[in-house]
Design a protein around this nucleic acid. Structure first.
Length: 356
DNA sequence: AATACGGGGAA
DNA sequence: TTCCCAGTATT
């Protein structure tokens, strides 16, 4: 452990850097817990540039937590469409309802109670408590792991819970009592702008003299992260039914699986192979189905990379007399949230060429 | 302690 | 391609 003097130098230098280099972000202009909570949920595992337009859209569409609580779930999911990790949207909605109707519209007032909210873990509770309430509790996110592991030369595996506790303890010694909000945002901005994962800007870094990683030439290998995910292949054949009126059929995903609560076209789903004989497969699943024509819309399967699965996706157009279940008009599809890969495909499609 | 869960940007 | 992003919930 470094000296007390160094911890003060670290905090002061960090905040000095922040005041000169910080990004101007809309959620920094407020102490409103609702807006700050919203920004923190959106920014989980998400870059600022990607989350920013979603933050604006949500705050505009739902100016208060009650507006969000009262929204239909389909609307919330659709607004979240494309951002990924959709459990965040479901938890966001559930928490909005709880705050609006069980907590009288008031967010829990401290770190410990914030932790009880769905979708709010240690990082997010610390972020909200420090930024909205000035509670002295350090955030530990990917940026903090990176900055501290480098400056302090910490070589523990950051994917373990034990290491996370070590970093929380270290950060707790660094965070100043008088301005935790600025410190937390400073260390995250520093990690995002200066001490970046790849090719950080060490020559202009204020910690170049103190940084253990820089002095021992370990910047490129820190932080150490050992856990590596294994990615499964998965084969999806989506069936776009078109009936005689030009309507199609969609269904909602409800299983504990990817894309829960989002919509999709009926699908054949396998971890080993694409459907070999679509015609037979369709007749097996829907025993009464008058098929006029089957058209393969994707000569080559579309690949779509998720964190734990690599999807190989084909789309089929199947013209029939009537849809096998509830029908949806093509124009109404934009009322539903789809996985982005489906949404992009729909957008690229021309219905006329589909049925010609 | 491991694993599942999206999508996109950067190198 | 590979990495990883203002992580959380579940097993």
């Amino acid at each position: 452990m470094r000296s007390i003097l160094f911890t003060m130098i670290f905090s002061n230098k960090l905040i000095t850097w922040y005041l000169e280099n910080k990004r101007f972000l809309p959620w920094r202009e407020t102490k409103n817990p609702y807006a700050i909570w919203l920004s923190e949920i959106i920014l989980q595992q998400t870059r600022v540039a990607q989350g920013l337009p979603y933050f604006e859209a949500f705050l505009t569409t739902y100016p208060t937590v009650k507006d969000l609580a009262d929204a239909p779930e389909d609307d919330v999911m659709r607004l979240w469409q494309g951002l990924g990790y959709y459990s965040r949207a479901r938890n966001l909605h559930a928490t909005a309802k709880k705050v609006a109707y069980e907590l009288n519209g008031v967010f829990p007032p401290n770190y410990k109670e914030l932790l009880t909210l769905k979708g709010v873990g240690e990082y997010t509770a610390a972020a909200i408590a420090s930024i909205a309430y000035d509670e002295v509790v350090p955030v530990v996110d990917g940026n903090v792991f990176r900055v501290l592991s480098r400056v302090y030369g910490i070589t523990s595996d950051i994917s373990t819970n034990t290491t996370k506790k070590e970093f929380q303890a270290l950060a707790a010694t660094l965070i100043p009592q008088h301005d935790p909000a600025t410190f937390n945002q400073a260390i995250m901005d520093f990690g995002a702008i200066q001490c970046t994962p790849k090719s950080p800007d060490c020559p202009s870094c204020p910690f170049i003299k103190e940084c253990v990683a820089y002095q021992t030439n370990q910047v490129a290998v820190l932080p150490i992260k050992l856990s590596k995910v294994k990615v499964k292949k998965r084969y999806l054949d989506f069936i776009i039914f078109i009936d005689k009126d030009g309507n199609t059929h969609i269904e909602q995903r409800t299983a504990k699986d990817i894309w829960q609560q989002l919509y999709q076209f009926p699908v054949f789903d396998s971890f080993t192979h694409h459907v070999e004989d679509i015609d037979s497969a369709l007749r097996e699943r829907y025993d009464t189905l008058y098929i006029k024509e089957i058209k393969e819309l994707t000569a080559d399967a579309i690949t779509h990379q998720l964190s734990h699965q690599k999807l190989h996706i084909k789309f089929w157009c199947v013209q029939i007399e009537a849809t096998p279940s509830v029908q949806t008009s093509w124009e109404d599809l934009n009322k539903f949230g789809f996985p982005i890969v489906i949404h992009n495909f729909i957008t690229s499609l021309d219905l006329k060429t589909l049925i010609s």
